[in-house]
């Protein structure tokens, strides 16, 4: 276990360094570089621009700049936004809550639905039921997130008037129920498009387990199917789903960006889009590194959890 943990940690540290390099190089490879925003302001002279560049250390070789930037990154100083000088970490923190709510609410919807769909498809392999379940998965997999959001807004907000079409809360009306009503459509959208990820993995895992001898024995002995599913199949099929969280999180963040745009939900996806629009490079770099680090951390925790929960993995 310790050896496994150390190896995982080592690989993750290496990946973290590489991830920060990618984020850094991407932004510094832009035409105009991090200075592009300043060059646009009225009355800017090339002398003043050079002064700013010197002040920001942009006249030094790229590798020195990277070392400087990553050293500050490690100590928690992620730089300041060009827009209003807010520290980047504070900005991310302020937007993270909204994304976390959206992610959690959509997970509560997509996980049980996906697992149920996957198990039904696995148990009824080769029947009409499986075909229907697969069809549903394909449809959900193929829906453009923004379109599903727009359709929901049209049906549930414009036509029926059941739910609001965007924002966190109604201004001057920040009650809990009001907040939940605002969360309904975005999380439904993001939840539905995340269902196929869970269902496809569950179907594969559950299918393998369903064909194993101990399940066949239980079925031969006449144990009711629901009992086998709940007592034997589900615990075994859920275990390998734990590391899938490492695949799920990047998908979720991508989906969240699109969903947040449609529903004007102030999460980190919207923050990235706004920062790109303003060429607010410290925030862009910060968000790229932050999201990748979050993905790494999440998959590391998931792997450890998987090892702790599954006795077969403890050597």
């Amino acid at each position: 276990m310790t050896g496994f943990l150390l190896q995982k940690l080592g690989v993750n540290c290496l990946l973290l360094v590489l991830v920060s390099m990618v984020g850094f190089v991407l932004v510094h490879a832009t035409p105009g570089g991090p200075l592009a925003q300043f060059a646009l302001s009225p009355g800017m002279t090339s002398a003043r621009l050079a002064e700013i560049a010197h002040g920001m250390g942009l006249d030094r070789p790229l590798w020195q700049q990277y070392l400087h930037w990553s050293a500050r990154l490690a100590t928690g100083d992620w730089g300041r936004s060009y827009r209003d000088q807010t520290p980047v970490l504070t900005m991310i923190w302020l937007h993270l809550g909204a994304t976390a709510q959206l992610g959690l609410a959509s997970l509560i919807l997509s996980f049980p639905l996906g697992v149920a769909l996957g198990i039904v498809a696995a148990l009824r392999a080769g029947t009409r039921t499986e075909h229907l379940a697969s069809l549903l998965s394909v449809v959900l997999l193929s829906l453009p997130t923004f379109w599903l959001g727009l359709v929901f807004i049209y049906v549930f907000s414009v036509r029926l008037g059941w739910f609001p079409a965007g924002n966190l809360t109604t201004p001057g009306h920040g009650a809990f129920m009001d907040h939940l009503r605002h969360l309904a459509l975005p999380s439904l959208t993001l939840g539905l498009v995340s269902v196929p990820l869970w269902s496809s993995y569950t179907q594969a895992f559950a299918g393998d387990i369903w064909r194993q001898d101990h399940i066949r024995t239980a079925r031969a002995l006449g144990v009711p199917a629901w009992r086998i599913v709940v007592l034997h199949l589900l615990p075994e099929a859920l275990l390998p789903l734990i590391p899938v969280a490492g695949v799920y999180l990047p998908t979720l963040l991508s989906g969240a960006l699109v969903t947040e745009t449609v529903f004007t939900w102030p999460g980190i996806g919207r923050l990235l889009l706004d920062s790109l629009q303003y060429r607010d490079y410290p925030v862009v770099m910060g968000l790229l590194v932050f999201s990748a680090a979050l993905v790494l951390l999440c998959s590391l925790v998931a792997e450890i959890l998987h090892h702790l929960c599954d006795p077969r993995l403890r050597g």
Binding site: V19, L26, L249, P250, G269, L276, V295
Partner: peptide
């Protein structure tokens, strides 16, 4: 595999948008 794992850490739309904006 390290290069692949590095790229897969980034949410795909985040990476795509940043590249497209640049």
């Amino acid at each position: 595999t390290t290069v692949i794992d590095t790229v897969l850490c980034f949410p795909v739309i985040f990476l795509l948008l940043t590249l497209a904006a640049i």
